[in-house]
Design a binder for these strands. Structure first.
Lengths: 218, 218
DNA sequence: CTTGCATCCATTGCATGCAATACATGCAGC
DNA sequence: GCTGCATGTATTGCATGCAATGGATGCAAG
């Protein structure tokens, strides 16, 4: 049964196509179109679309579904939830580290990703930067050892990503963001749970301000 | 389209049956059984089961699905996420209150539910207490005005509820719990955001300890 | 040129058929 | 009596047919 059903294939492929902007937000998808594109029947496509709707990536709109985008208010809400959860994962990761339950190699990997993210951002490779940034935050969530938090965050990240795709802008202060990442890594490595939580929350809310405000001056 | 499809009916009914213990955790459900019980074909049932699986209420298990229960570790994870999110909603609700954006009647309603919860708990009507307790927490999430947080919490509440159904035990210190509810209501009414967050987090983690520990003495 | 309405048809929601398959059952060998 | 394998069967995953529906289209009236 677990042999990757077509439903799963369809869901993963559609998710990918939505998150990389091939199907931009607002695009209308019909079962038959997608079925034709993925060369399968309507049934698995239908199930995939419903699953994506449950994840908030598409939204039923009259006939068929459209790729969803959060409006400004809902995007703000998503960032608030994300901030709360990333504060949690950062805190948990730092705590585990202070208890010696995190492998040094994992911390090295985390720092490497942070550095790589800073590098590609500085180079202006924004698509790569988005991917690495997300990987950075996911690594922390994984270090937290809370699968429920990770799962919940993945859903929220997806929604934020699809909602901010069109404004695929560089951070206004790349060095600032990289510095925050660095601070977060340090707090985790040092096992400072409260500090890690504080930095993580501030970082997420800061990111929200940058990507989601009209004209916040530096 | 929005005219309550059979898929939705099936999902809601099954969710209800699972949450009230009619289908206890571990019970195996087959598409055909459910289809017969709900008097519809396999297709909408199938979609409902997949939706419930995405919500974590059932889990595919070989042929068919079984009603899911979180093991001790995952239940702990769920409580951590819940604590983080309820701290957020309490904080947001208090903030809105301090900004005068909450109708007095809503606060009265909140206090009423808290009192009623305390009353039925004291009376030993535990099933009612569970329902009211959940309503209490949901009211706060609604006052927070963050639909994403509310949605996320609903999912987690569902999973916790189905996982703790069998131990439908009274809180070991009902007055203690009621006092925490009271403190939370007060913090929100006074608009003390930080305090509300702190109390909410502590309350959830306290609940976890009580319901999820082996033999914590009173 | 715009507005209202009737018609049409694309598209969905649901039912059902069919093949694949995982699990249970029972039998043989040890 | 226990273990391993073969066979049978229940149940799924997917495809497809059919009726319902709602949005688009075109026409007529103002």
């Amino acid at each position: 049964m677990s042999s990757r059903m077509q439903t799963d294939v369809a869901k993963d492929q559609l998710r990918e196509l939505i998150l990389d902007g091939t199907y931009p937000s607002g695009a209308r998808l019909t079962e038959m179109e997608v079925a034709a594109a993925l060369e399968m029947s309507r049934t698995p496509v239908r199930e995939a679309l419903r699953a994506l709707a449950a994840d908030g990536l598409v939204r039923p709109s009259g006939r068929g579904v459209v790729v969803a985008a959060l409006d400004r208010d809902h995007l703000d809400e998503a960032y608030q939830v994300r901030a709360a959860l990333e504060a949690l994962t950062a805190e948990l990761a730092a705590t585990r580290q202070s208890e010696g339950r995190i492998a040094p190699a994992d911390l090295v990997a985390l720092r490497d990703v942070a550095n790589e993210t800073a590098a590609v951002t500085a180079e202006g490779r924004f698509a790569d930067a988005v991917r690495l940034n997300r990987r950075f935050h996911r690594l922390i969530a994984e270090l937290a050892g809370n699968s429920m938090a990770l799962l919940t965050l993945e859903r929220i990240w997806d929604q934020i990503q699809v909602s901010t795709l069109r404004s695929l802008a560089p951070p206004s202060r790349p060095a600032h963001v990289s510095g925050q990442h660095e601070d977060l890594v340090s707090a985790i490595i040092l096992g400072h749970a409260d500090e890690a939580a504080k930095v993580a929350r501030a970082h997420v809310l800061d990111t929200r301000t940058v990507t989601n405000s009209k004209g916040e001056p530096a």
